[in-house]
Design a protein around this nucleic acid. Sequence first.
DNA 1: CTGAAAGCGCTTACAG
DNA 2: CTGAAAGCGCTTACAG
Lengths: 346, 346
Amino acid sequence: MKGISIKDIAKQAGVSPTTVSFVLNGKAKEKRISDQVSKKILKLAAKLKYKPNQLARGLRTGKTKTIGLIVEDIANHFFANVAKIVEEEADKFGYKVLYGSTEDSQVKAKGLLEVLEYRQVDGYIITPTPNLDKEIEQLRHARKPMVLMDRYLPQIPTNYVMVNNFQGAFDAAEYLLKMGYGKIAVVTITSEQIQMKERLNGFSAAMKTHKAPFPRKMLKKIPFTATKEEAVSQIKAFIKDIPGLDAIFFTTNYLGIYGIESLKELGLKIGKDIAVISFDDHDLFRLHTPGITCVAQPIHDIARNLIQVLMNELSQNNHQINQVVLPATLVKRESCTKSVSLTLEK
Amino acid sequence: MKGISIKDIAKQAGVSPTTVSFVLNGKAKEKRISDQVSKKILKLAAKLKYKPNQLARGLRTGKTKTIGLIVEDIANHFFANVAKIVEEEADKFGYKVLYGSTEDSQVKAKGLLEVLEYRQVDGYIITPTPNLDKEIEQLRHARKPMVLMDRYLPQIPTNYVMVNNFQGAFDAAEYLLKMGYGKIAVVTITSEQIQMKERLNGFSAAMKTHKAPFPRKMLKKIPFTATKEEAVSQIKAFIKDIPGLDAIFFTTNYLGIYGIESLKELGLKIGKDIAVISFDDHDLFRLHTPGITCVAQPIHDIARNLIQVLMNELSQNNHQINQVVLPATLVKRESCTKSVSLTLEK
DNA sequence: CTGAAAGCGCTTACAG
DNA sequence: CTGAAAGCGCTTACAG
C-alpha cells in the first residue's frame, strides 16, 4: 500500500540502494556510476513513478523544503495577494508554504512559531505582532533563515521587505494639501507598530513641510480588536465631532473600508462633502463611485523580494542583512477632487 | 544544535527511550509505567522544552498531521475567507494546512496534487478544476481522505461541501422577477463546471416557473482565462447589444466586480438604469453606492463542514460518503429596486 | 565504478 | 513495570 521506495528500485535494477540514491540525486557523474546503470535506474524510477519520501529525506538531511508564512490575516486583501505570489515564487524553488494568521495577537503568533518549529520549516516569512521581539530574537539567534514583512522591529537587525510607509503617507498628505484640502483628519489603529508609526510620521512631516496644522484631535486611533460595528461607530462619532472636516486619511485598507461605511451611514458624499484617501488598494476603492484615491503597495514586488531574500539566506551562510524598502504609488481617483463644492456642516 | 530528542530525556531520566515515548504519548497508564517515572519524565520534558520531531514521527507512523488545501485562487475573497477558517478549524485538531491555487488549470492542479502526495499529507480539501476526474478517481481509489469544495464531479461519488447553487440562483432570478424586471441577462464563465451549470439551471428554472423568457442571447459566457480588460470589454459589448436590458445576474464574485466596472465605463447607473445581482458577497457589493444585491455563501459553515467531514474520514475507516449542501442567502440591497425609474436605451 | 552500514528521531511488537 | 531491538525511507562517509 505504501509508495515504492529506493529499495524497490534497487532490487529491480539489481544494484544497491546507495547507487540508486546517487543516480536519483544527480550525483551519477560525481560518483562515477556507469552510464548503463544510471540509465537503467532512471528508466525504472520513471516507470514506477518513484516519489522520494520527503519525511525520510528531511529526517536525514534536516531540510524539509517548507517555509512558514505568518500573516496578520489571510482573508485580508493585501495579505491574501502577497500569500498567493509567495506560494508561486516558492514553488519555483521547490518549496511549499505552511501559513497561519495571527490576528495581530502575540499569543497566536507564538503558537504559530512553535508549530512551525515543530514542523521543521527551513525558513520563515513573518508579519510580526506587537511584543514578538523575544521570539524573533530567538530565531535570529538560532540563525534561522527569516525575513519580516509589512513591518519590522527597530531594535532587532533582521531581513525585511516592506513598502516605504513614510513616503506613501507623505505623498498622500501632500496630495490632499495640493488639492486644496485644509482640515484633514487621520484614522489609524492603536498600535505602536512601526509601519503605522511611519505612516503617521510621513503624514505629519508633509503637513509640517507645508505648514499645515495637524492637531492631536484630528487623529483617531481604533483598536485592531474592535469589531466592524465598533470601529464604524467610533469613526462616525469622530467625524461628527470635527466641524469643517474636509478630508480623511485612513492608514490601512480595512480602516478605509470601515471609513467608507461610516461616511455612508452618516449620509456624507465622498468627493463632494469630504475627501477620502486610504493606504492599500482594493477592488472596492477602484470601483466605488467615486473612486477612492489610495496609496498602493507593490504587492508583486513585495512577494518576489520576500522569496528572493529568503532563498538567499537558505542557499548560503552569508548572513548579510537584506532590508528592502519598496516605493508606494499614489493612485489618484475621484474621492479627492476639489472641483466639486466642498461643504460640511451638520 | 539540533533540538533535544527522546534519547536525551531518556538518558537524563535514567530510563529507556521506549518508556519516555510511552509517557509522552499518554500511554503511561496503559503501559503501566510507575507514577514516579512518569512524573519525572514529564517534568524533564517540560524543562528541556522537548518538541517531538514530526518528521521522525511521520516516517514511523505514516501520518504527518498535515492537510492539503487546493483552491482556485487564494487571493479571491471567497477562497481566502474559507482558507482562513479551514486553517483555524484544522488547528483545533492539531493539523496544519499546505495550500495552493490552481487558477482553474488542470495542469496546475495535477502539479499541486503531486507535491501534496510527495509531502504525504494525510488528507485533501480540493476545489477541482475541469478534467481533474482521473486524479480525483485515483485518490478515491487509494482511499485517501478527501473532500471536495465549491464544486463536485457528478460521475465520482465523493465527499463534498458546497452551497446550494441551484437554490441561490433560483432565488436571485425569482427576486428580480418579483421586483418587476423583465429583460434579464446572465453573465457566467465558459466552463462545464457543475457549480456554474447549477447556478444557470437554477436561474432558468425560476424563469420557467414564472413563465419569463430566457433566450440564449441573454446569456454571456466569459472564459476564466480572460484578463480583466478582456472580460470588461466583452461584458460591455454584450450589454450594449441588448436593447431594453433591465437587469443582469453575475454568477460569481469576480464577474460581478467586472460587471460593475463595465457598467461604470458605459455610464449606466446601477439601480437606476439597470439592476445588478451577483453570486457571492464582497466588501465592494456591501459598500457600493447603491449596494449590490447578492447571493451570499455561508463561508463559516462551509469551512467548518469541510474540516468536520475530513476529520471524520481521518479518524475512522467508515467510508460513508458525506455530501453537504448548505443554503445560500439572498442579501437584498439597493441595486435591484424598481422604485426608481427604469429606462435604458442607447 | 559500486556497496555495506550507520544514523536521522521516532513508535511499537515482543520479551521479560 | 520496563527495555532491547527493529524499522519507517532516505543520505552519506567510508571502504574496496
